[in-house]
């Protein structure tokens, strides 16, 4: 217990010194009209995404985005996360993931629960965050893109 609380203090200290990715993601101007932007919640997509990540994703994918070897797929460096097929990535959040498939040369055992309770904006924010954290650097995801995938998923 002594060790645990000391470890906790350390973690808090370390966490407070951890720097969030400073570069803003490239936003597609055409996809984000000014009117809709004003309706979005406060803060940057990265800040909002980090909060959602910490609450809903971190326990499996971990603070370093490294996942858990053989159990939970990593997000940092993952081709499916930083790749061009955003619809597929959005689909993982909406529908979960239960298949035994090879991911970047490795297999992962655990199922991912679907998170359909997250709003279009929240999914856009958290995916923007994971696509632009750690070593990842990719375009932002918009609420409109999530809405479009969600509509197709329901059919």
């Amino acid at each position: 217990m002594k060790k645990l609380s000391a470890g906790l203090i350390l973690l808090v200290i370390l966490a407070s010194f951890q720097t969030a990715p400073s570069k803003k993601p490239a936003v597609h101007k055409a996809a984000a009209p000014v009117v809709k932007k004003a309706a979005a919640p406060a803060g940057t997509a990265m800040d909002r995404g980090k909060l959602i990540y910490t609450k809903r994703c971190l326990v499996c994918h971990q603070v370093d985005g490294g996942g858990v070897p053989h159990l939970n797929a990593p997000l940092d460096g993952a081709s499916a996360v930083k790749g061009k097929d955003k619809a597929k990535l959005i689909g993982y959040v909406l529908k979960g993931f239960n298949d035994r498939v090879e991911i970047d040369g490795e297999y992962y055992s655990n199922n991912m629960a679907p998170l359909p309770d997250l709003s279009d904006q929240e999914i856009a924010d958290v995916l923007t965050f994971v696509r632009n954290s750690w070593t990842n650097k990719a375009s932002a995801v918009t609420a409109a893109e999530v809405k479009s995938v969600r509509a197709k998923t329901k059919k």
Partner: peptide
Amino acid sequence: SWNRAPLP
């Protein structure tokens, strides 16, 4: 462990 996150 892994499932102890966000705790150490």
